[in-house]
């Protein structure tokens, strides 16, 4: 699939996730039944436009409530999304991935991947264990939402504060702390490709567990592969191999494969697309 088509999918997805347009003017969030379901990507449910829930926020809330009820619903939701789509969600269906990719387009000197970035890519599993699972279970607080999530500031706090005076009046030190984190991530995204996805995002960490076996996945035809490693060198994520846990299934590597050994299984985008892109 061509990069332009992927961008279009990302934009449409971001708009569909946040199509309660009147909320942006009123400073109030959508309260309908659709919010009992989750979107696949990281999208704050306190965004005035959001019509559905954030999977990460909902998982933490379910863990906070797990003293009373085992979180079957959210575990099922994430298992299903992961098994069907894996990190295709990161590549195509996450609004924050889109924001970072757009920032990375700003023409400036870029910091390339290396051993350091490969090592840092494991940090997201620590964030998942500590902030998404540990803190909610032990302290009954959604740790990731409260202390890290930049989407809560970008999509939630800023639009709400702009239109809602009572919210604006309540913002304090925690908001300032989270705002600094959000700004740091956005600035870093100008220089480092998808810095949040690669090193911090616990949702990507969850989906990465399924990436090799999900219905949507990238595959390499071993019979055609010459092991030239052009795909791994071309990829801006920290992959060791196409389709591994770090692969966001963007499919752009297929365009540099001289033997057309890389293909997407089984949904959208074909080898033909990749060949068109290469020429």
């Amino acid at each position: 699939m061509k990069s332009g088509k992927r961008k279009l999918v990302q934009v449409i997805t971001a708009v569909l996730y946040n199509c309660n347009f009147t909320g942006f003017a009123s400073g109030k969030i959508y309260k309908g039944k659709l919010k009992s379901a989750c979107v696949p990507g990281l999208n704050c449910y306190s965004c005035p436009g959001a019509v559905s829930s954030c999977p990460l926020g909902s998982l933490q809330q379910s863990l906070v409530s797990s003293k009373y009820r085992f979180p079957y619903y959210m575990l099922g939701m994430l298992l299903l999304l992961g098994a069907l789509l894996g990190r295709f969600i990161c590549g195509f269906l996450c609004p924050f991935g889109l924001v970072q990719e757009l920032l990375f387009k700003i023409p400036t000197k870029k910091i390339k991947k290396g051993k350091w970035s490969r090592a840092l890519s494991y940090v997201k599993y620590v964030v998942l264990a500590v902030f998404v699972i540990g803190i909610p279970l032990i302290f009954a607080v959604p740790g990731f939402c409260k202390y890290i999530c930049p989407q809560g500031i970008l999509e939630g706090a800023l639009p709400l504060a702009a239109a809602n005076e009572s919210v604006r009046g309540m913002l304090g030190k925690l908001f300032s702390f989270k705002l600094i984190i959000a700004i740091a991530i956005l600035v870093a995204a100008v220089f480092i490709f998808r810095v949040f996805c690669r090193f911090i995002c616990p949702l990507g960490a969850i989906y990465s567990f399924f990436n090799r076996v999900s219905v949507a996945r990238m595959e390499v035809d071993e019979a055609k592969c010459t092991h030239c490693n052009a795909c791994v060198r071309f990829c801006k994520m920290d992959i060791k191999k196409v389709g591994d846990a770090e692969c966001i299934q963007c499919g752009e590597c297929a365009g540099v494969c001289a033997t057309c050994a890389i293909s997407r299984k089984p949904i959208i985008g074909t080898k033909k697309d990749s060949q068109e892109e290469a020429t």
């Binding site: 379901a37 306190s46 829930s53 619903y73 959604p142 913002l171 304090g172 925690l174």
Partner: peptide, 26 residues
């Protein structure tokens, strides 16, 4: 099982209120 045991309500009840943690109020 989650729908049958009411887990869906946990998600809905959280999502229809402004999440103070998310927006940095506390």
């Amino acid at each position: 099982v989650g729908i049958a045991t009411g887990g869906v309500n946990d998600v809905l009840n959280k999502a229809i209120r402004i999440c103070y943690e998310c927006i940095g109020i506390g």
